[in-house]
Design a protein around this nucleic acid. Structure first.
Lengths: 252, 252
DNA sequence: CGACGCTTTGAGGAGATTCAAGACACGTGG
DNA sequence: CCACGTGTCTTGAATCTCCTCAAAGCGTCG
């Protein structure tokens, strides 16, 4: 099996040599969030920057040994695993500033694969540096623990979502992506859905045909405008109401 | 609001004064798993033992400040949260040797309530001792991180389960409980379901009427025998096949 | 321009829910 | 000890949501 994560020497061209964890525009989202200045300086020295993958290429593989922590700088990715029948299950989609790799931290073996949905650029903190930092930098273990515990929340949210109707799930999905992009400085009302309908449906537990029908329905209600993968939210408030209370009282 | 977790002085009667984390029969499941001898000795000194709750009583409350880590010694509990419409959602059921409290570790505020399903006895590591141990005991932060990352796995498992049919979910639910009890030294084939059908359905995302119908169906197929809450697995292999491959090829 | 994959749309059917009613279990008080 | 009441569990019938299968439209890339 080929080495999936290239050493920084081969990947980091001179184009962006001045970027460090201190002056990175994602420092309020990525690992540095929660660290003090000296800790960030230490982190800066250990991170491999400017790793690139094209659409469809893996960042790491399920079953492979723990590769360390990945921070996505640009682009988007999907985190997938295989269920017991060998079917792909998309656990999450990943956006800039978000961390990857926790699926291998406890057992030292990745239970998921991370696959680029478009061209991605990411930073890589290798496994042995993770251990080194965790041992020497108290703030760092806290950050890891913090992020890892956050997944409890996300587990609960996913559970709640799986109880709702297909319409509510799609509305919620769109709004969550909107919010995640907003926090990262992108437009919250107009963006590209980088995943296919199939992938969306896989993640939400809905047939892709149903996804299509629901998106059409949302357009007919003037909640959104969709042109292939390009999406524009035209009535955010109504879209939000739709997914919180539609099933309770709203007429057809 | 009353203090939910009593200090050990009031709760620990003299009946079991000799129990420590070292000689506890759950030491291969609870926090000590992964710690070396001296670390366990240190832990022993900080834990409040023999806390009791009766059926229906809370161990801690959603919305309350982080109370520390709880280790269940006997009995069973449910971990519940409220969805955005105010409905109860049962995130998990808890058995002896399992840890509780991670839902408050990151944010310092519990997002879930832990409620006893029957009389429970638990150990309590108070919040400030958690911090103290995390700072001074490298093994301890690792244990926390480890357990917390394990929840990634469980999130993925839950996601997979939510894609299966109601029958498969119930079969899987029974088998998982069986396995969790087996590991803890209880009978794996005959046990009491301490939760109601309603609670089971809530956790699995199935109406309680459907739970009843499926349990009847399993009985008719001679996979299990059920008398109210008492359950006996009579054909474990078939029950297992049922949930792994039923939907693929098996006739009615 | 043609082939391929992705998306959309329609029709029919399966699985699970909801509503309604009856059976059973458990605890209380007579 | 039994009658009674409450809450839980079971069962049935009607309904609905979403899936599956099938086919046609659209876009993209060689």
């Amino acid at each position: 099996m080929t080495e999936l994560i290239a050493p920084s020497s081969s990947a980091s061209s001179g184009t962006n040599a001045a970027v460090t964890c201190t002056n990175c525009n994602l420092d309020n989202l990525c690992i540095p969030k929660g660290l003090v200045r000296e800790e960030i300086d230490e982190l800066t020295l250990l991170v491999n920057r400017n790793n690139i993958r094209q659409k469809g290429e893996p960042i790491y593989h399920a079953g492979g040994s723990f590769k360390g922590i990945i921070a996505l700088r640009s682009g988007s990715a999907k985190l997938v695993t295989l269920d017991s029948n060998g079917n792909e299950l998309i656990v999450d989609f990943i956006f800039p500033g978000e961390l990857l790799g926790f699926d291998g931290l406890a057992s030292q073996v990745h239970s998921c694969s991370a696959i680029a949905l478009e061209t991605v650029n990411f930073c890589h903190l290798p496994a042995q540096k993770v251990e080194q930092l965790a041992a020497n930098t108290p703030g760092f273990s806290n950050v890891l623990l913090q992020r890892s515990c956050d997944q409890y929340e996300s587990q609960v949210e996913n559970m709640m979502l799986s109880r709702r109707t297909a319409d509510e799930r799609v509305a919620c999905f769109i709004l969550r992506i909107s919010e995640r992009l907003r926090v990262r400085g992108y437009s919250e009302l107009e963006f590209r859905l980088t995943m296919s309908r199939e992938e969306m449906g896989n993640h939400l537990g809905i047939a892709h045909e149903t996804i299509s029908r629901i998106i059409r329905n949302f357009q007919d209600r003037n909640l959104i405008e969709v042109k292939s993968k390009q999406l524009k939210i035209t009535n955010k408030k109504e879209l939000f109401n739709f997914y919180t209370s539609y099933s309770l009282n709203s007429p057809k």
